[in-house]
Simulated assay, not measured.
Amino acid sequence: MRKPVLLALTLLLSAPALAWVPKLEETTAKNVIDGAYGRREPVPTYLTLDLNVKDGQFASGPGAVKVFDGGEKCLADWLAAPGDFAAGSRPAAVTVSGQADQLYFQAVDARDNFQVLSAEGALGADLTAKRMAEGLLRVDVNVRGLPSEKARDAYLLRLRAPDGKLVAPVRKSFVNDWKPMVGAGSTTAVTPPATSTTPATTVNTAVKGPLEGTLVYYFEPLKAGIGASDKVELLIRTEADTSCAYSVTLDLGSFQ
């Protein structure tokens, strides 16, 4: 009668404790690599919050998004008309990850190329240099309905530290996945003059919105007093010229 209890206890003890890993070490590296090679169940290396709206609620569940500024009408309008971008774009998903997630992709690449990757090799200088620096937390925000590529710069993200201080990202970028939304975008075409050696061609010089794509931000939570297993608020202001700002909770204790 006690065997199922002992088995469950053994599985719990053998499973790695979950918490964001600011600096990879041998045990975590081995667990991530073994998961990528199929030697064990994959280790969770990221957290994604689905902010798409279905039947009047966020896919991640009621309360997934809260109002930080601007009043409840901001959230009510979002839920009532998630595809109406006249008043600004909408975050569609937020994904948070660290060094372990980047190691996972390095391990998958080695596996797919019929190579063996060890924890020692993963922590070597070559592969370490290709991952984000120690202490960085990466936040990807998938956006729908942005009016232009320039408007990517208008997005504002902050982490809210335990003392209430708002922590800005140390770096920001974007994924090269930006494109017009299906049925909603267009391009501006320019036809340069033809010469004796160059035939006339049509060149796309600008992409008109609404657009969809991914913004990337890097934070240093530890320096702000945020622990590796804490739940922390992420605050988001879109490019819209309104007072609306939103809050989502990132559980750093749900992944490595």
Rank of each mutant, 00 (worst) to 15 (best):
R152N: 08
N52Y: 09
D251P: 03
Q115A: 14
S186L: 04
V139Y: 06
G253C: 02
F85R: 05
L234I: 08
A8L: 11
N176C: 05
A200E: 15
D69T: 10
A87D: 05
G164M: 07
A119Q: 04
A86Y: 02
P42A: 06
L7N: 11
P193F: 13
Q106C: 05
L136H: 12
D55G: 12
S60E: 15
T48M: 08
A194E: 14
V216I: 14
L51R: 10
Q57F: 07
D163G: 08
A87C: 00
V21T: 15
T187Y: 15
N142P: 00
L18D: 13
P180W: 12
M181A: 06
F255M: 01
G63N: 10
L51I: 04
T188N: 15
V5H: 09
K165F: 03
N52W: 06
K3N: 12
R40W: 01
V203L: 13
L234T: 12
D55L: 06
S118F: 06
A206I: 00
L79Q: 04
P16C: 13
K73S: 15
S186I: 01
K223N: 15
K208C: 01
G209C: 05
A29M: 03
F85Q: 04
W78K: 02
F255V: 04
V248L: 07
A87P: 00
V108G: 00
V182P: 09
A8V: 06
K30W: 02
K208S: 11
A228K: 12
G63V: 04
K23N: 11
G83S: 07
L250E: 10
L103S: 05
D34N: 12
G61Y: 12
L75K: 04
A224R: 06
G121Q: 11
F85P: 05
V5R: 06
R152G: 09
K66D: 11
Y218N: 10
A36K: 01
L12F: 09
P82M: 02
W78E: 01
D163Y: 07
T48A: 05
D34E: 13
D251K: 00
K73L: 13
D251H: 00
V167P: 07
Q99L: 01
A161F: 04
D140N: 12
A17S: 13
E26V: 13
L166F: 08
P193C: 08
P162Q: 05
A110I: 07
Q99I: 02
T249W: 01
R39Y: 08
